[in-house]
Design a protein around this nucleic acid. Structure first.
Length: 919
RNA sequence: GCGGGGAUGCCGGAGUGGCCAAACGGGACAGGCUUAGGACCUGUUGGCUUAGUGCCUACGGGGGUUCGAAUCCUCCUCCCCGCACCA
């Protein structure tokens, strides 16, 4: 049994000593940037991390072996609440806590054998990093992309800070799950909405992102095209007092408006009721609604509440006067905060109107029946024809959308507009452990930006962590400063930035992590960026990935980069679960990677985790599975160790099936025999499939193929040392991305030079024809399972003639087998020949099958001179098709009739199954 | 409600028109090795079976297309995930 822990330590030291994973810009080489979402250093590496890195490392190693100049860095998302909470609890300074966590994490990552370029490491809590957050913020400020505004915001009472919209899940804080409160505060925002349209448009270019993530982002941005309609507001006396605008996507229903609702936050509600009999009641209603939590207000199936506010509006299309209401179902943040209500054609309005006995009027009539407003049980939201709509009666409702909008625009009572759900990004946080916002408040000059020359604004150390309020407020030396403009006494902004700012550009920083004069070196970034392969959890589908896409565009518009999209290809890895639930402390089902590594070694941990499930899927942790991976690695080790005397490594391939020609040193007179050929062709096939699987991120399938190969090598008797040696060499190369330590060890054992980690990936032949393997003995095989191999052999031998005997059951199958053996892919365009065949009704039954192969054969210029298909007389059509084949190849086609000749020729051919004779 | 993804053998999980009773691994069973256990190796692992290159039943359920369907179309059921009073 191999001592995997010793092997892994040995090679980790060697790799480090020789610095083989360092990435250096080289314009002559094609780059490839592999990146995992940098972790928050919580101090404990969990299985999710191991999975994330195992996937990334396997891919980075593979790409490196494919000859790419690979950038594969690691760093830490080092600002954040847990460090601060630890300080409150334990009295350790967040910096200290974070640094020790990072060091634990780093050593665990090194122990796993990840091939990072550690020279590019970064930590976001480092002043040399967060300085550039501040600089970037100031640039945004100059451009008007950063602004300060008082508005209703989400407040987490437990974290003692505000949250961005993206950080509220089901009305709860994304971190601590406390119920989020609504507050009105003055805060800093980034104007991400300026980029809403571009962020949406850009999604269509991200073809290598999971559909799911793209859809989630699309929904989050929530673009909807519609119409703004203006209504004059009148009092009881009919006198116009104001004007209001509403947003709708259904202008075709304007004639059905019977009331209008305003959101409770809408300032006009207070204004218009002031001093009226409605004032007190409305105020009471508003405060009642506002008291409710976000969860209560948005709960499913919640009953809608509202009240009349004593004012009316005039519908511009028909001059009708209808009542104005305030209601909790209108959202102030969306559209204009005012909604035109059409109860007959909107379910929400319908429910509200029924509850408060507001009138209903049908304006869209279904094609096949008539609606009666009195009898409707729910709103009619399908298409139909306009009725009760004046000059628009009889128009289809979809056409009416355009026509009515045109009409509104012409009359100056409406206009086309676009609405987004996306809100600006609130970046202020009332916490200590983050990037200080570089702003100084002066009584005279207002909010004054810190001059760039004074950056970074350092986080002070003289703070007290009381657990109440922002610790930064306790630092006198930080808070009290002088105004950069007037030099008068002033106070610093004590809010820090959302840590998502840090993670929105760290991937640029890796390109030149030591750059002191800029966020990053533009030239280096333009070599490495964009990230070619990004890997991380689905939980960042919106937050981090949307912010990063926004940041990259801002950087672009600032002239710092030429790209718009930071991540070319994205893989969202699945969760690691155990016993049917997520691995988590609260479920008590956590498996510590350290224990697994100690017991089985890193290679086993990595192999299991990659083999147990496809990367995107959930991975069910299984102790038995881990043991299985461990057994497999032992089997591989002993396969090599106990057969070292049969290993002769003279290149990958003895017979030249890799297309490079036969190895001149290969001269075993008994070889190649069928077993040798089988191993050789399996080797070729394995390389091909493993390569394809890795490219498609089907890592578990790639490993499965390697396992099959190992099983076959175990069964390989009377080994030819060249062929076996070549197979072992290939196997070692294939294993290298997955179990790099064992691969290095094997590489050394078989006497190969250098590190396997930086060898060239093995090649494979797409086409297995090899003229130099002609000497292999003439073979006659029969039976279904052999067809494929026989045809492969046939091609090596360049036979004069192949006779394929098929019974009726097998006609179609045989054709498809030929097709596949000749490596003809699906032909979607059957071309001229197909037309000829199916135009004759007599050919119909087999036309389809043959029509797929014949044009393909022609196109591929198959090297088989003669194809003989046995046939039953009733299948005249087959004859015809064979003629087609014959013409296509200008070759002789023999048709053998009857049982006798079949049995004769095939020798042992059994009825019902095909046989092949090679001459 | 809208959107995305699923349902395969004892289990995890491949397979997207014919080498499919279904890869690979786990588990189980039998045998070998061994003082024994473990480890390792070999074989079996849907049912029937005259043991055959045999038959039947099967890839969530119904219907369809096809010479042929786990795979394509259609309807249905159930599960997971995201968004959700977005006008």
């Amino acid at each position: 049994m191999a001592d995997f822990n010793a092997i892994q330590e040995k090679w980790q030291k060697e790799w480090e000593k020789h610095g083989i994973f360092r990435a250096v810009e080289d314009n002559k080489k094609k780059k490839y940037y592999v990146l995992e979402m940098y972790p928050y250093p919580s101090g404990r590496l969990h299985m999710g991390h191991v999975r994330n890195y195992s996937i990334g490392d396997a891919f980075a190693r593979y790409k490196r072996m494919r000859g790419f100049n690979v950038l594969y860095p690691m760093g830490y998302d080092a600002f954040g609440m847990p460090a601060e909470n630890a300080a409150i609890k334990g009295g350790t300074h967040p910096r200290k806590w974070t640094e020790s966590s990072m060091s634990d994490m780093r050593s665990a990552q090194k122990q796993l054998g990840m091939s990072y370029d550690w020279g590019r490491e970064l930590a976001s809590c480092d002043p040399s990093y967060y300085k550039w957050n501040q600089w970037f913020f100031l640039q945004c400020l100059k451009k008007g992309l950063a602004y300060r505004k008082e508005s209703p915001i989400n407040w987490c009472p437990s974290c003692n800070t505000v949250l961005a919209n993206e950080q509220v899940e089901d009305g709860r804080c994304w971190r601590c799950s406390s119920v989020v409160e609504q507050k009105n505060l003055e805060q800093w925002f980034l104007r991400i909405t300026d980029y809403a349209d571009e962020l949406l448009e850009g999604l269509s270019d991200l073809s290598d992102w999971p559909e799911k993530v793209r859809v989630m982002q699309k929904n989050w941005i929530g673009k909807s095209e519609g119409t703004e309609i203006y209504f004059d507001i009148v009092g009881e006396d009919g006198k116009k007092i104001d004007r209001i605008s509403t947003f709708t996507t259904r202008p075709d229903t304007v004639f059905g408006i019977t009331y209008l609702v305003l959101a409770v936050e809408h300032p006009k509600v207070i204004e218009w009721t002031k001093g009226t009999v409605y004032e007190d009641k409305v105020k009471a209603f508003i405060s009642k609604v506002k008291q409710k939590s976000l969860i209560e207000r948005t709960a499913e199936g919640k009953e809608k509440n509202g009240m009349f506010i004593g004012k009316y509006f005039i519908n511009p299309v028909n001059g009708e006067r209808c009542p104005l209401w305030v209601a909790d179902y209108a959202l102030y943040e969306y559209g204009t905060g005012a909604v035109m209500a059409v109860p007959t054609h909107d379910q929400r309005d319908f429910e509200f109107a029924k509850k408060y006995k507001l009138p209903l009027r049908v304006v869209i009539s279904p094609h096949s029946y008539e609606l009666d407003a009195e009898k409707m049980s729910r709103a009619y939201t399908e298409d139909g024809v306009l009725v009760n709509s004046g000059e628009f009666d009889g128009t289809g409702n979809r056409d009416a959308i355009k026509e009515i909008t045109d009409w509104l625009e012409k009359k100056g009572v409406g206009r086309r507009t676009i609405n987004y759900k996306l809100r600006d990004w609130l970046i202020s946080r009332q916490r200590y452990w983050g990037t200080p916002i570089p702003i100084i408040y002066c009584d005279k000059c207002g909010a004054v930006p810190v001059p760039e020359s004074e950056l970074p604004v350092l986080l002070p150390d003289d703070v007290r962590f009381t657990g109440e309020g922002n610790p930064l407020l306790t630092s006198e030396s930080f808070v009290n400063t002088r105004c950069p403009k007037c030099n008068g006494a002033a106070r610093r902004e004590t809010d820090t930035m959302d840590t998502f700012i840090d993670s929105s550009w760290y991937y640029f920083r890796y390109c030149s992590n030591d750059e002191e004069k800029a966020m990053f070196d533009r030239a280096k970034a333009s070599y490495w960026m964009p990230v070619d392969q990004y890997i991380g959890g689905i939980e960042h589908a919106i937050l981090h990935l949307l912010y990063s896409r926004f940041f990259t565009r801002v950087l672009r518009d600032h002239g710092l980069t030429g790209i718009s999209e930071p991540f070319k290809r994205l893989l969202t890895q699945g969760m690691v679960i155990k016993d049917g639930r997520k691995m988590s402390k609260s479920f008590g089902n956590v498996v510590d990677p350290k224990d697994i590594i100690k017991r089985y070694g890193s290679d086993t941990a990595r192999l299991f985790i990659l083999f147990a499930a496809l990367p995107e899927k959930e991975l069910d942790w299984s102790e038995l599975g881990v043991a299985g991976a461990y057994r497999f690695l032992n089997r591989v080790y002993s396969l090599v160790e106990s057969n070292l005397d049969s290993v002769m490594v003279e290149g990958d391939c003895a017979l030249g099936l890799d297309g490079k020609g036969q190895n001149p040193k290969f001269q075993n007179p008994k070889s190649p025999n069928a077993k040798d050929l089988y191993i050789e062709s399996l080797r070729n096939k394995t390389i091909k499939l493993v390569t394809e699987h890795i490219e498609n991120f089907e890592l578990s399938l790639a490993i499965g193929k390697i396992m099959e190969f190992v099983n076959a090598l175990h069964k390989y008797q009377d080994k030819d040392p060249f062929i076996f040696g070549g197979a072992i060499r290939s196997l070692t190369l294939l294993l290298s991305p997955f179990t790099p330590h064992l691969a290095e060890e094997l590489w050394q054992m078989i006497g190969s030079e250098g590190f396997v980690s930086v060898q060239e990936w093995p090649g494979f032949a797409e086409d297995r024809i090899d003229k130099k393997a002609e000497q292999c003995e003439e073979t006659v095989l029969q039976g279904i399972s052999d067809i494929r191999e026989v045809l492969a052999l046939a091609r090596i031998k360049e036979p004069k003639r192949i006779t394929l005997f098929v019974s009726e059951d097998w006609k179609y199958k045989a054709i498809s087998v030929i097709k596949e053996s000749l490596e003809i892919k699906k032909t979607r365009d059957p071309g001229l020949i197909l037309k000829t065949i199916i135009s004759d009704p007599a050919l119909k039954p087999h036309g389809k099958a043959l029509s797929r192969i014949v044009p393909a054969l022609v196109k591929n210029q198959s090297k088989i001179p003669t194809v003989v298909l046995d046939q039953d007389t009733e299948f005249n059509a087959l004859n015809e098709n064979i003629k087609v084949i014959s013409d296509a190849f200008s070759a002789e086609v023999e048709i053998i009739r009857g049982q006798d000749s079949k049995e004769q020729k095939a020798g042992q051919a059994m009825p019902g199954k095909p046989a092949i004779l090679i001459e």
